[in-house]
Design a protein around this nucleic acid. Sequence first.
DNA 1: CTGTTAGCGCATTCAT
DNA 2: ATGAATGCGCTAACAG
Lengths: 352, 352
Amino acid sequence: MNTPPSGAPRRATISDVAREAGTGKTSISRYLNGELSVLSPQLRARIEAAIERLDYQPNQMARGLKRGRNRLIGMLVADLTNPYSVEVLQGVEAACHALGYMPLICHAANEVDMERRFLQLLTTYRVEGVIVNALGVSEETLRPVGEGGIPAVLVDRSVDGLVTDMVGLDNQGATALATRHLVERGFDRLWFVVQPFEHISSRRQREAAFHQALEQYPQASGRTVVLELGDADELAQTLSALDAELDAAIAAHEDHARAGVALFAANGPVALALARHLNQRHGPDWQKRVALLSIDDPEWAELAGITTIRQPTYDIGYRAVEFLHQRIDGEQSSARDCLLPGELIERASTAR
Amino acid sequence: MNTPPSGAPRRATISDVAREAGTGKTSISRYLNGELSVLSPQLRARIEAAIERLDYQPNQMARGLKRGRNRLIGMLVADLTNPYSVEVLQGVEAACHALGYMPLICHAANEVDMERRFLQLLTTYRVEGVIVNALGVSEETLRPVGEGGIPAVLVDRSVDGLVTDMVGLDNQGATALATRHLVERGFDRLWFVVQPFEHISSRRQREAAFHQALEQYPQASGRTVVLELGDADELAQTLSALDAELDAAIAAHEDHARAGVALFAANGPVALALARHLNQRHGPDWQKRVALLSIDDPEWAELAGITTIRQPTYDIGYRAVEFLHQRIDGEQSSARDCLLPGELIERASTAR
DNA sequence: CTGTTAGCGCATTCAT
DNA sequence: ATGAATGCGCTAACAG
C-alpha cells in the first residue's frame, strides 16, 4: 500500500558499510560517534574508505529511535509574512546554534488547522521541544505540548488552556509609552487599529492598555477599529468608514493641520495597510493630515518616516530558546513569563 | 553519554497500548493505519479507549524507519528576511498541501555552513525531496542531493556542479523589460546595483542581461555597482562613492531635474538599502533627483512609489513542488529549467 | 581494541 | 478476525 519513494536509489546502511569494510557494525557506529580513540588506525582507514565508496549517510530516523534525543527543536510560526516573526526567528537560530540545537521551522500561515497538524508532526517526530507563536486555539490543538507533552515555550502571546513559559513584549509598558508620546505631541483624537482579536492575547492586551493609558489624559479620546487584513472587501469597507471618521474629526477642527488626529497601529502589518491606504487616497502628503505610530519596527518604517515601538525581537527569540533548553534539561519550576520592554523610535510621522 | 531529554515524561508506545487494551500490537497498528474493517467493533472500541487513556501518539521516527516514506519535503531557504523567499514559500506550501506533503523549512541565514548542515539534516532524516534556494557552493555541500541523493529542485538560482530541475525568473527577459522601460522614459545614465555575485547565478545573469540590453540603446550608458549589504562600513563606503558618481552626472547636466539618472536594483533588499540611503541623504524629495527601479516587488514598494518587476513568486514555489513531486514519483527525464516571466509595475519612481 | 547481541517503536508477513 | 514473530538501521551493553 505505502510503497517507498522510487525517486532516489536505495541508500547504503551501516551493515553495508560493515561488510564493505570487513568488520562489524559496532565499529562503524563507534566511528560515526567520534569514538575514534578506540579504533586502530588501519580499521579506521578501512571504515573511512568504505563510507566514502558507498557514499554512506547514517539514517537519523534510526539513530533517533535508539538514543532518546535528536537535538531538534521545532519553531512553529503563525505568520512568516510578518517581519516580526522572521526577526524573532533570527534570535531563535542564534540561540540554537549556541546551545547545539537545530531549529525546524513550521509555518501555520494563519491556518488553525495547519497549526494543529504541524504541532502533531513535531511531537510525533519527537523533537525535544517547541517554540510556539500560536494562533491560539488551545484545547485539542495544543494538547501534545505543555504539561503532559513535550516542553514548549510561547512567543508573543499566551494561550488560554496552556501554562508554559512565555516570552514577549511588555505590551502594557509599550502601549503606555506610545500613547504618552502621542498625547504629549498634541494628538488628542486617537484611533487604535488592530486585527481581529481572535485568540491572540497580545492584541487584546495592547488594546486594553491603550484605553487604560488614555484614562490619564482627559483631554484625549480614543476609539478602537478592528481591521481584517485578510479580506479585501471587508478591509476596504472598514477603511472607508475610518476615512469618514477621520474626515469629520479633521473638518471639525479650525486648523486642519493641527487637528491632532493620530492612528495607533497595533502591529506592523496593520501600519502598512494603513499607510498604503492613506497614501493611495491622499498621496504622499497624507502624513500632514494624520499621524501614524506603530508597534513593530519593520525596515520600511524608517523609509516612510513612521514612528514606532521597536520590539526586542532578537532577544525574545533568544530567551525563548534558553527557557526551552532549561525545560528540556528537566527544569521543573512553574511557568515563567518574560516581558521585554519596547523602545520608542521617533520619526516624522508624529512630529508637528 | 547521550541521555534522553528529561524534560518530558516517557511517552506510551504501541506495546503499552496493546497491553492496556488487552490485545496484540498488530491490532493497534492496524487501527492506526485505518484498517478498521478488519477489526471487530468491540476490539476497536477497547483500542480507542486505551489510546485515549494513555494519550498515545505513534512515533513517526519508528514508522518512518519501517515504511520507506514520510511525505515530508524540505525547503531550504537562503534568506528569510527577503520577502521574495517568503512569497515563494507560500506557493510551496499551497502545492504541498494539494499534493499531500508537509514542508519543513530550514533557514540557512546566508551562512554556507548552515546550508551544508541543513542539507545533511534533511537527507539523513530521509525527507522525500528538497527544494533548495541555494547559496551556491556545490562540491561537498550539495553532494547528498541531485543525481545520487534525494530528489531536489532548485529555486531562483542554479548551482554549478548540480544538474537538477530548476525554476525561477526569466532574468534575461525581465532585465531587458526593465532596461527598456528606463531608456524609453528618458533615463540614459544607468547604474545597475547588485549584491556580491558569489555563487548566485541569478545575480550574474541579471547583470549580464543588463549590459547586453543596453547595447541596443547607444544613447544610454550603464555601470555596475556591487553593494555588500551585510557589512555596514563597506556599505557606507560604496554608497558614498556612488553618491559622488551620481552628483557628478547630475551636475554635468544643464537641467538637473532631467539629468536622466536612474538606479536599477537587482533585487528588493538592494532597492530598500538604496531608498533608505537616498532618503536619508536628500529627504523625501530624493525621487526628483534619481529614478529607481527594482526587480522584486515587496509590499513597501507601492507605498514608496517604486517601479518594479514583479516576480511570479507564488507560481515559482508551486511549480517547484510539482517538479519535485514528479521526481519523487520516479520521473527520470533529464533536468528541466522553468523560467517564468516578470511583470513590470510602473510607479512614480520612473515617471518624468 | 573489536565483534555479538539485544532492543528502540512500529509495520508486516504468516499462522491461527 | 487476531496475534506472534521478524526486521527497518542504528546504539549500547556485554563479552572476548
